[in-house]
Amino acid sequence: MSSQLLEVNGISVTFDGFRAINNLSFNIGSAELRAIIGPNGAGKTTFMDIVTGKTKPDEGKVLWGEMSKNLIGMNEAKIAQEGIGRKFQKPTVFEDQSVEDNLLMALKNNRKSFAVLFWKPTDADMNRVSDLAAEIGLSNELKRKSGELSHGQKQWLEIGMLLAQEPRLLLVDEPAAGMTPEEREHTTDILVEAAKTRAVVVVEHDMEFVRRLNCKVTVLHEGSVLAEGSLDHVTANQQVIDVYLGR
């Protein structure tokens, strides 16, 4: 059993009277692939917002790492520096800049403005960029502007940027949306590979994609955990069928 990396402990958040997250608690190990599924409005994206510091919860704790540091109250940049990377639903890369520049910006280096001003890429940095490009299948596109890439390639570039950050936890929001079947397969491979050395949490709608990830599944409903276990286990759960799958 791997040690625990992230502990979400009793968080609740209310938007204008609507309880988006209701006393949510669960744990994620340090090298684990986890899928989070749930119907629309179950609080999947809000959960990511809370962990990455975008939304402040009304109560509860998010404990991180061996030191059990509370992430609540830290800003987004600090949390990212702690080692949490996030991929958005829509591919968000810097379209005006080359694939290489995008990856260089994401590389794990000093983030302070003065250090960045005088920073020059070393050979090790360039090697890391070409390794990453090979991993996400963009070796031939390094000099191209990322705005010219296809939708799927942008998704991979964003995953590549996340890997470049060398995070210990990767939060991925609907990575397979709008991808062709071959692209989905490649995406699955990248995520499974990444989860060997770090924790990867995938929020997904598509059951086929989740089945291919072949990992532990957490079902959210109305802001709290409804069921947890293998996909077959949760899909056999009568409550899950009622709220989500049975419709």
């Binding site: 990455t52 975008k54 800003n75 987004e76 940049a77 990212a80 520096q81 990377g85 996030r86 958005f88 968000t92 890369v93 810097f94 379209e95 005006d96 800049q97 520049d101 260089l104 910006m105 994401a106 983030r111 403005s113 960045v116 001003l117 920073w119 020059k120 890429p121 940027m161 950050q165």
Partner: peptide, 21 residues
Amino acid sequence: GKFGSVIRGIRDNEARVRFLG
């Protein structure tokens, strides 16, 4: 240099730059 990359990133997508740390 990279500083230029970062500020152009801020212009195009501020939140993304923030989540990069």
